[in-house]
Write a protein that binds this DNA or RNA. Structure first.
Lengths: 216, 216
DNA sequence: TAACCCAGGATTGGATCCAATATCAATTCT
DNA sequence: AGAATTGATATTGGATCCAATCCTGGGTTA
């Protein structure tokens, strides 16, 4: 059940702690306390932190340690702009070659989102939502691009959780996802791209209201 | 002179070893031997490797260790395609707001490239060439995009070194750089973008001949 | 009063040691 | 003979310990 290495276990835990807000944005990370809390030594913790640093989830200064990254509004807008560029490319490549199984996976992922939403399971929703988006990315045949989007995705996970806490937002996401599935079924690539842009824009508008205006 | 932490020193060394080909693409990395060679323990080495893994410079499998990543032709083409998407965006943002000092830096970087080329200093050339390209990226006001391009850049550093070993290629790069500087001076954004695309395409064509066709 | 300085504690960085896993060759069994 | 197994060795993973750096508070001095 638990991953083959302690580092991976720690990495998963840290992602969860950041996603759920248990580790607040901007908070310094005390390695000793955190390691003890997770029941591991500081070595695997430090390696996991270094991975997160590479992804921009935490920031690091030599001899001063790590702290949870917090995104300014500018950061967030940049992340969404870059996602637009990369996801548009991926959609161009992927839509014509999506298989029926891929579409089934989209439908299944959307169902999982709604199920987790009903259960109030934030972590489960984030996971299913990610599934949904990455069906298309992974079908693009561009693994490196997919990986970059994954990192950008992770960077805003904490905010996405907030976004999803509103039932109004959830409703809209479901509508948009269904529209995207329909456009994919019809192989209307440009339409899919347009819908995704709208989907992101909706999130950005909602997030503008949530995100603290200040930088860290 | 030496960085404040051993990890950073090791990181710099590893980048250099990969850039110069002293660590061959695909080669497994024996931590014990490498640590001894660098005169450090395995702890900072492992943290540096983890950073490189996040950048895709090395690949890692649990309990099997790290090996130097080697790019297939497909990988390489993907890297350049993603760079095209991101650099086009950066150029749009940057060109109108580039200052005279920025342009001076471009000229200076180009001069440094030519100087290092004459001295046969591969590492110096790579550094100056990077300077040149990142003047524009950093002026884009998109730090996260800049960081992503930096990673993509690093990923192909080893091949770039090969590319530069041909005097014909060096000539062409100089011509193209000068054309880019001229277009920037004239604030012709679309022209700059076109020239950058040509610049990358030239590299891709040359690299097609160099890169082994096989994946790892 | 405010700036500087200097302990002492807190925290991070690195080295060494031991445990866990993988690799590989020799051996056994079918 | 070939496949599976087992044990020895090499290599990675993690814990503990020590060193280096940073931070904080109290005292000193201009």
């Amino acid at each position: 059940m638990r991953p083959p290495t302690t580092q991976e276990f720690v990495l998963d835990e840290l992602r969860r702690l950041i996603l759920t807000g248990e580790m607040a944005a901007g908070a310094p990370i005390r390695q000793d306390a955190l390691a003890e809390r997770l029941g591991v030594s500081r070595v695997p913790l430090r390696e996991a932190l270094r991975t997160l640093e590479g992804e921009g989830q935490v920031v690091y200064r030599p001899h001063r340690g790590y702290q949870v990254a917090d995104l300014s509004l500018d950061d967030l807008l940049e992340v969404y702009r870059i996602r637009e560029l990369l996801e548009t490319e991926a959609t161009h490549k992927a839509v014509p070659s999506l298989t029926d199984e891929d579409i089934d996976r989209l439908v299944q992922a959307e169902a999982d989102i709604e199920k987790a939403a009903l259960a109030g399971d934030i972590v489960g929703m984030a996971a299913a939502n990610r599934q949904f988006h990455f069906v298309v990315l992974e079908a693009s045949g561009m693994p490196r691009l997919t990986r970059l989007v994954r990192v950008l995705w992770d960077a805003t996970d904490a905010y996405r959780a907030l976004y999803y806490s509103s039932s109004e937002n959830r409703e809209r996401v479901h509508r948009e996802h269904h529209a995207i599935i329909a456009a994919i079924r019809a192989r209307k690539t440009d339409e899919v791209i347009r819908l995704w842009d709208e989907h992101r824009d909706g999130a950005v508008i909602a997030l503008r209201a949530i995100v603290p205006a200040h930088p860290s």
